[in-house]
């Protein structure tokens, strides 16, 4: 990896580097779909927080296709797929004592999610 030189810093920061991928990968879900997160407990990197595993949510919006960090960080495989904001009620995550109004939105990928039945 080349060393960042002083005369390249400003341009490098301004340009950035998106993890968005211009790939024609079909989305498994659409906004409004009910989903359940997988109960996975990998030893390596994952973006599915422990507090949201095995929980029911609703697809709020589809952000498009992004590199999948769970595989990219562990094996280098970018495995591009759709990333969504998934809406969970506070009660689904935290139980009956939580506010009936509050919501938690978590960005998750296709491989974190399954359709929720019923």
């Amino acid at each position: 990896m080349p060393v960042l030189q002083a005369d390249k810093v400003t341009e490098t920061l301004r340009r950035g580097g998106s993890a968005r991928v211009d790939a024609d990968v079909p989305a498994r879900f659409a906004p409004g779909d009910r989903v359940v997160t997988r109960n996975i407990n990998p030893l390596g990197h994952t973006r599915l927080p422990r507090y949201a595993r095995g929980r029911q949510g609703v697809i709020d919006r589809d952000h498009g296709v992004f590199i999948f960090p769970d595989t990219h960080a562990n094996t280098g495989d970018p495995k591009p797929q759709h990333c969504y904001s998934v809406l969970f009620t506070a009660r689904e995550l935290w139980g009956a004592d939580a506010s009936p109004r509050d919501k938690i939105y978590i960005d998750l990928w296709d491989d974190h999610l399954d359709p929720a039945d019923g």
Binding site: A19, C83, S85, S99, R101, I106, D107, L108
Partner: peptide, 15 residues
């Protein structure tokens, strides 16, 4: 107020 809906956004991806 209790009747305001709080939405927490957990930045788990590159958004």
């Amino acid at each position: 107020d209790d009747d305001v809906e709080v939405r927490v956004w957990d930045s788990t991806a590159e958004l």
